[in-house]
Design a protein around this nucleic acid. Structure first.
Length: 256
DNA sequence: ATGGCCTGCAACGCAGGA
């Protein structure tokens, strides 16, 4: 089973790239973030024509998540239980016996911002939800844009980023709490190249200069981590015309 | 050099991203 996640920064703009990419890599499940598309505007027909059943949880202009799956999806949940939130940031469903959660964690803007406080509250609620989900679903995969770089290796210049949003200690602690709950960072199950990132600023030729952050992640429960045979970042779409600023991340599972 | 770029919405600039 092949799982993938991609922050597309507008599904309307990136749909051709998404269809190209699914055609090339044939993931069984693709989680999308920042679709910026209302559900009634979602390009369901094009996605079905490509062999995927879409599940969307979107809103106008901002945020929005979706899951594209080659097999049937059941038991969808579109919000963190007990955490009222107008922003559409999560989507959970069960596909071929795997509980899949697609997440778009708040950005936080800056550590001085009210949005940063919202981000920390959101992450605390998210952690509680995932702990409960783990108790129900031994096969749990959480994929998305976490807007947190967990480790020095995940930042092109950790000294410059120290204490900044996306790399501040409270955010990294929140990410560690997800790991403490029993989720493994699939990317770090394997040897990886240095300067492996999933996001590069559109400005300053950041991609060409390898000035990026690894903030998009695939977290796996113990049972799925044991079955994981590979986890990679595909930087190719970031080279294309009109790219998303994020690259997709893929994980392969050998499930019996 | 504290902004550089991209998207959506709407409207001729703004909010938001990270």
């Amino acid at each position: 089973m092949k799982l993938a996640t991609w922050n597309v920064n507008s599904l309307k703009v990136r749909l051709p790239q998404v269809l190209d990419w699914t055609g090339m890599h044939r993931p069984d499940v693709l989680c999308l973030q920042e679709t910026k598309t209302q559900n009634d505007q979602f390009p369901a027909a094009e996605i079905r024509a490509a062999g995927y059943e879409p599940l969307a949880n979107g809103q106008k202009t901002y945020n929005g998540v979706a899951i594209l799956a080659r097999a049937a999806a059941a038991d969808a949940v579109t919000a963190i239980p007990g955490f009222p939130d107008e922003q559409k940031r999560v989507l959970a469903t069960t596909i071929s016996g795997v509980r899949v959660i697609c997440a778009y964690v708040p950005n936080g803007e800056s550590v001085e911002s009210d949005k940063y406080q919202y981000k920390l509250k959101w992450l605390a609620a998210f952690s509680g939800w995932l702990t409960a989900e783990l108790a129900h679903y031994p096969r749990l995969a959480v994929l998305g844009d976490f807007n947190v770089a967990p480790d020095d290796r995940d930042v092109y210049d950790p000294k410059a980023w120290e204490g900044q949003v996306l790399f501040s200690a409270p955010e990294r602690d929140a990410f560690k709490s997800l790991q403490a709950a029993g989720l493994k960072d699939a990317f770090r199950l394997f040897e990886q190249p240095e300067r492996s990132f999933t996001w590069w600023d559109y400005r300053m030729n950041a991609f060409r200069r390898k000035m990026g952050l690894r903030i998009d992640h695939i977290l796996l429960s113990e049972a799925l981590a044991k079955a994981c045979t590979a986890c990679t970042i595909d930087v190719e779409p970031r080279r294309s015309e009109r790219p998303s600023d994020h690259a997709p991340v893929l994980a392969e599972l050998n499930l019996s």
